[in-house]
Amino acid sequence: MADPIRVCIVDDEERFRDTLAKLLSRHGFSVRTAGGGQEALELLAQAPSDVIVLDVKMPGLSGEQALPLLRAACPEAEVLVLTGHASVDIASAMIAGGAADYLLKPCPTEELEGAIRAVYDRRQATRPR
């Protein structure tokens, strides 16, 4: 069996990230969670992830500020932005900053899972061997 996709959920809403982690774990993902950008950096320093699900509006290090730091800390991870605070400006800035995709909350778990798998597969396909 293939290794599970390692997902790191970065969101300041505790209940949201915990339930999402529970759901993704049930569906075969290996999940870790962080309550903000700083905590995510510490987690990634311990072990890499394949996909980072990143919120935008968070106290402390916001998603926008955290994006370049997370990409530097874990270049092999794809970043999927998932936020309720959507604006086209932020979306295009995040994509220009290297995020792989941008989803708007509330997002059905199935849709989010599909997006996680899609960015993961894309990365696997384009990764230098």
């Binding site: 809403e13 949201f16 339930t19 759901l23 309720g84 909350k105 997002c107 778990t109």
Partner: peptide, 11 residues
């Protein structure tokens, strides 16, 4: 503001 609670309800 509503999108965040809606996201939690969805999960």
């Amino acid at each position: 503001e509503i999108n965040n609670p809606l996201a939690i309800i969805t999960q």
